[in-house]
Design a protein around this nucleic acid. Structure first.
Lengths: 195, 195
DNA sequence: TTAATTATATACCATTTAATACAGAATTAA
DNA sequence: TTAATTCTGTATTAAATGGTATATAATTAA
């Protein structure tokens, strides 16, 4: 048994609250008081439980990827590359325009630009976006080897195209674009897909 | 003649310096000392000449749109909608990957998310992005009425697709993507264009 | 009970933030 | 010269930032 006074707050719930706050305001726009208020915990509790702002953000990114952004994992399970692509776009639109969520994508609007002091955050997010793109690329490579995609198709290019559209959708939804309009954008993007 | 001590700095050059700083660091990541250092002027001079940080940013946005982002105006002069689209993507890639510039697009990475205190900045940028999209939409409407685009083509959807790809490219370049790779993305996007 | 351990709350710290007050310097108009 | 005007530099302000020191409360192990 571990001794000591037990925590009076739920770590998972607190992380969720932190996630939505960072999602809405970005890393810079979120202050420690913003976080403690949203998480309903005291400042020292935050530092004791999560390290510091940067460490908390990293935990939040993990959580974001494994919960709201899990549509990526679902998408690559589709039987054909085209369906993978389709599900990717629809999943992104659903997530980013869900009224229960802040608009946009945490990996995009967390921090696209920064002063030298927080370069680390920006690079961390770029790396996470690149990781998603790499996952898609692997799936498309598989599709090529299975004959599901035409010979000569470049999986890396196709994956980067998918990532570009998804990230573009994130900018659009951050600006308040409507789900219905973005579904038409997805339809158009699908026409670029090789048959 | 206007009397008084003359300015010892060039307003245009100072605005350029401010533009690159905001472009690289975003609105939040840029502090007033960052600006005064880059512009080589004192703090009170900045306030006297440009108002405050927000007003300076607005002037910088105008400048960005009329200089580096003027490729939009060039693109819509192309004779066909497809060429407009092509030039739009190539122009965006050229601008965003020019080694002389910070990566990405100021209208995108200036501020995608924010705390309540600076909602105004975020909305201002969203409005400027929407304005660009509206310009493209007008051009595509013209193309439809000229018979350059197939009947039934929705200019609004096509314009939003173009904006989405351009903004997606901005996210990619902010993350360090290479020009060569993004040209392939542009090729793919072009395949979605109606003939 | 006692000791050890862990969480909480108040209060605080140094630094940085955007923004200004004020005095002096440089110019034009009369 | 004189007055009016405008810019510049130093110094300062109040508020907000991320991060802690310290004391106390609550639990387990002995």
């Amino acid at each position: 048994m571990k001794s000591g006074r037990p925590r009076t707050f739920d770590t998972e719930k607190a992380l969720d609250r932190a996630m939505y706050t960072f999602w809405r305001k970005g890393y810079y726009g979120t202050s420690i008081p913003d976080l403690t208020r949203a998480m309903s915990i005291s400042r020292p509790s935050l530092y004791a439980a999560f390290g510091n702002k940067e460490a908390l953000f990293a935990k939040v990114l993990d959580r974001y990827r494994s919960k709201p952004a899990a549509y990526l994992n679902e998408a690559i399970k589709e039987p054909t590359a085209k369906k993978v692509f389709e599900k990717l776009l629809l999943g992104a639109i659903d997530l980013q325009t869900d009224p229960a969520n802040p608009g946009g994508c945490l990996f995009v609007q967390g921090a696209l630009a920064s002063g030298e002091s927080n370069d680390a955050i920006r690079h961390e997010l770029a790396a996470r976006r690149a990781s998603g793109e790499a996952t898609i690329k692997l799936r498309f490579e598989q599709a090529v080897s299975e004959g599901d995609l035409p010979v000569g198709t470049n999986p890396a290019d196709l994956a980067k195209f998918a990532a570009t559209v998804v990230h573009g959708l994130a900018v659009q939804t951050a600006g308040g674009d409507e789900r219905e309009d973005l579904l038409h954008v997805a339809d158009l993007a699908l026409r670029a897909f090789p048959n």
